[in-house]
Amino acid sequence: MKYPGRVVRLGEADPKVVKAVKAQLNKALHLAQEAGGALDEANPNFGVTTEQAVKLFQSRNVDALRQPLRQDGEIGALTWAALFGEANVPVAEQAGTPLLQKVVEVAASQLGVREKPKNSNKGAEVVAYLHSTGTAPGNPWCCAFTYWCFGEAAKALGVANPMLQTAHCLTHWNGAKQQGAQRVHKSDAVANPALVKPGMLFIIDHGGGSGHTGVVERVAGEFIHTIEGNTDGSGTREGGGVYRLRRKIDTINKGFIDYA
């Protein structure tokens, strides 16, 4: 059964969803052989007993990154994928507009760019990213990288660059709506990963005015595949190059910006 686009929890009102969840839990946990017996699939109520069964399932299973599932009794996309299979969670590989698709392509063309010298926030490509936003060499450049990608994509298509011109992640988040973009907040994205599309930009707030951003390349359930500047293989916000990474949607603590 396909993920319904929301967190399934205590009190779920859709009887088809509840029946499917109970049937899958019975099968996955072999509940007919347990002391309490199987869940009643004919009962459309997602009650405390079903919630406890979900917690049991979560305690015995992991997500696609082999990380333990959160044992909260709620079925988000990660638990749904573990319960019903990865093929039953949202997957998006194509951006919604030609411009955003071009942004993804431009970002991918920069994979392998590295700071020169190391840990300097400099180098020919990095300086060009920063220059596009009017920012001096030596500054953090993840947001400038996304602006440069939008600029190159817009130039290739003969259209105006819609992105707010800034090298500061949180300034971008705060000003995106006035620029005509839509914002998808973390809570909405976690509940319904289908809201997140390729070509969107993610924003992470690290506190103290610092943040990190990058381009969403692909979405698979509660995971996003990204292309990011000023990072490295560990996903830090102060790395030395452009990398392709995978992140959980629930680690994107601000949300996503959509210029579709």
Results as ranks from 00 to 15, higher is better:
Ala194Gln: 05
Ser187Arg: 15
Ala136Lys: 15
Pro193Ala: 04
Phe150Leu: 10
Glu115Lys: 01
Gln179Tyr: 09
Gln179Cys: 14
Thr166Cys: 04
Leu130Gln: 06
Gly158Val: 04
Glu115Asp: 13
Ala128Gln: 11
Gln178Tyr: 11
Trp148Arg: 03
Cys169Met: 06
Leu195Thr: 06
His168Trp: 15
Asn121Cys: 05
Ala191Lys: 05
Ala154Tyr: 06
Gly123Ile: 10
Ala160Ser: 15
Ser120Leu: 08
Trp141Ala: 08
Thr166His: 05
Asn161Ser: 02
Trp141Tyr: 12
Thr135Cys: 12
Val196Trp: 01
Ala167Ser: 14
Ala160Phe: 06
Gly134Ala: 03
Ala191Glu: 12
Glu115Tyr: 05
Tyr129Trp: 11
Val159Asp: 12
Val113Ala: 13
Thr146Arg: 03
Ala160Met: 11
Leu170Cys: 01
Gly123Pro: 01
Ala124Pro: 15
Asp188Lys: 04
Thr171Asp: 15
Phe145His: 03
Pro140Asn: 08
Gly112Leu: 06
Tyr147Gln: 00
Arg114Asn: 08
Gln182Val: 15
Gly180Met: 05
Asn121Gly: 07
Val196Asn: 00
Asp188Ser: 11
Pro137Val: 10
Lys186His: 13
Asn139Asp: 15
Gly138Ala: 06
Gln179Asp: 14
Gly112Trp: 09
Ala156Ile: 01
Glu125Thr: 14
Leu164Met: 13
Phe150Lys: 02
Cys142Gln: 00
Val126Ile: 13
Pro117Tyr: 07
Asp188Asn: 15
Leu170Arg: 01
Ala194Ser: 11
Tyr147Val: 04
Ala191Met: 06
Asn121Ile: 00
Thr133Tyr: 03
Gln165Trp: 11
Pro193Val: 07
Ala124Glu: 12
Val196Phe: 04
Leu130Thr: 05
Leu130Gly: 06
Cys142Lys: 05
Glu125Met: 14
Asn192Glu: 10
His172Pro: 12
Ser120Gly: 08
Val127Tyr: 08
